[in-house]
Design a protein around this nucleic acid. Structure first.
Length: 274
DNA sequence: TCGACATACGTCATCGCGTA
DNA sequence: TACGCGATGACGTATGTCGA
């Protein structure tokens, strides 16, 4: 099978495997993201997965931890380097699904299934990376949600935590004028010069239930604020200016929380006061 | 319309290094 | 010294965008 189709087939298989385990899966729109899937665990954390086809050779499942591009000077290779959280590796030959942290993968990795002729401490045993053993992943050590809420309170923002309720938002923010804002909190990262985050469309918290989205970007160490009705299904915030500046371009710096808070009165909404 | 260049994908070979 | 892993890079494929 031609490689590109094989990659698509593996992606389809992984999606099916995740759905079979009742894991919520989203796929990025278009072909411009470095990750293949977004998977959400039971706690609501969203993980960027890069699907890889594993080849079975010499008792090992082999896969590459880099992407390859072609440019004028020939082929170039790029490691994911934080652009994804985990590799979801599927090997058709052994019908195995493995979850490997991006940080543990260099340009290539092999997961040993068969016994080696020689015991070696560098051997990566496939059983240690079995998907069912590894899912759900460990929460991010920083506890980005708590850190974000603490940061907001440090800025003097009144934050009411809505976790544990059935509310479609994570927190409610109150400004100095006692106006309340139903707010969704999202982790974000920089990919392709844009701040990427799960826009939440899979869980359908639209403008009718959410006023603001706060994105905590680990790469820029910045919190961005977006009014929910500023986009329909998705929005991207450019970290670097484009060559041809366009007024439609959403610049990340213009959404920095410190610059945007408190929000302008949301048009067409009844004023909500405490 | 077409070529250049960009985004992806997997396979394979070779080499260096660490370890038993 | 043999073995095993990881790094590197050449090679093949498909598809989309953009400008001449």
């Amino acid at each position: 099978m031609e490689p590109h189709r094989k990659g698509d087939l593996t992606e389809a298989i992984v999606i099916a495997e995740l759905k079979r385990r009742e894991i919520s899966v989203s796929t990025p729109f278009g072909d411009n993201e470095r990750y293949d899937l977004l998977a959400e665990d039971e706690s609501g954390d969203v993980w960027k997965l890069q699907v890889k086809t594993g080849g079975f050779r010499d008792g090992k499942v082999l896969f590459n931890g880099k992407s390859q591009h072609t440019n004028a000077s020939g082929h170039t290779y790029e490691v994911y380097d934080g652009d994804v959280d985990y590799f979801a590796v599927h090997c058709d030959d052994v019908d195995g699904l493995y979850l490997v942290p991006e940080s543990e993968v260099g340009s290539q990795m092999s997961l040993r299934i068969a016994d080696a002729k020689q015991d070696h401490r560098t051997i990566n045993w496939a059983a240690d990376y079995d998907f069912d053993e590894r899912w759900p992943p460990e929460p991010t050590p920083s506890g980005w949600r708590d850190a974000l809420i603490a940061d907001l309170r440090e800025r003097g923002v009144d934050v009411m935590d809505a976790r544990g309720t059935n509310a479609p938002y994570d927190v409610v923010l109150r400004d100095d004028a006692d106006t309340l804002y139903r707010t969704s909190l999202r982790p974000g990262s920089v990919s392709g010069e844009r701040v990427c985050f799960d826009t939440g469309k899979t869980r359908a918290p639209g403008p009718e239930t959410i006023d603001l989205v706060l994105v905590r970007c680990r790469d820029t160490d910045e919190t961005y604020m977006i009014e929910r009705d500023a986009y329909d299904e998705s929005i991207s915030l450019r970290v670097e200016p484009t060559r041809n500046d366009d007024r439609r371009t959403n610049r990340a710096e213009e959404h920095a929380f410190g610059r945007c808070w408190p929000p302008a009165r949301l048009d067409g909404r009844p004023e909500r006061t405490a």
